[in-house]
Amino acid sequence: MLLDSRTIIQQVSDLHATTVERWHHQPLNNPYTGLLAVVCQQHQFNFQLWHQEDLARCPEATDQKIAEVKRAIDGFNQQRNDYIERTDETLVEMLASAGVLPSGDATLNTETPGSAIDRLSIMALRVYHLEEELERPEVDDAHRQRVTEKLRRCRIQRADLSGSLEELLSDVFTGRKLLRVYRQMKMYNDPTLNPAVYGTKRAG
């Protein structure tokens, strides 16, 4: 994949939208290669996480079901964060392959491209499900008006985020910005760092 920020943003946006639509009707799949394969896998974890979060809030869910869903949420969220890091790692590898080095006065950004792509993934899911709400036959006009306003705001936010990410990637690809991989280091999923886990084992 060429280091072209505009092309990458367009491809990522298309991937997010088309897969969200497809996965609601067909099994999860990942037909992509390179950076897009990583982006697609990260998007899958968000897709699965989204629907588990819905299940967790079902009024009829039993305590056992909620516990099962909570464990699934923890797993998907860990994988989601792992693949945010993997997205940034892949971009670093692409920079190295292209021989791009940061300039002497290159600065860091407060958010990595992987984190911004994660936010775009979630926005694609939000837009899809809001659009679904407009098709519900049993809702009234007031509901549709509220959803329409939310959709309008989401589309503005998505456009703003896409534009900012395109600028960031352009700066990274030309060496004006540094790209570092920041580890999430989630302690609650590490049995050696979560006292509720290792404390129980020690007490036993």
Rank of each mutant, 00 (worst) to 15 (best):
A196P: 00
C40I: 00
E89P: 01
Y32I: 03
T148Y: 09
P195H: 04
K65Q: 15
S13P: 04
E132I: 10
R126Q: 09
F45V: 01
Q11A: 08
C58Y: 12
S121C: 04
P195T: 02
R86H: 06
S103L: 14
N189V: 13
E131I: 07
I84F: 02
P113D: 06
L161V: 06
D160V: 14
Y32A: 04
I117S: 06
D4S: 09
H16K: 08
Y182C: 09
D82S: 06
V39E: 01
L179P: 00
L151I: 12
L168N: 02
D141C: 04
C58Q: 11
D54Q: 10
V20L: 01
L36R: 01
Q42F: 02
I156M: 14
S162L: 07
H25V: 06
A17N: 15
H51I: 10
G204F: 13
Y128C: 02
M94P: 03
T112N: 03
E135G: 00
I66L: 13
H51Q: 09
D171W: 05
P27K: 12
M123Q: 09
Y32K: 00
I122L: 09
S97A: 15
E68R: 04
A96H: 12
A98R: 07
E53A: 13
G163F: 05
K150T: 14
E93G: 10
S97R: 15
N81I: 07
A61Q: 05
T148I: 11
T18H: 08
R152Q: 11
Y182E: 15
F47Y: 11
H24T: 10
V20F: 01
A106W: 01
K150P: 09
A116I: 13
N81Q: 13
K177H: 07
R86M: 05
L108I: 07
T110S: 08
R22P: 01
Y32F: 09
R176Q: 09
Q64Y: 07
T90N: 10
G99R: 04
P31L: 01
A203L: 12
P113V: 14
V38S: 02
Y182I: 15
V181R: 04
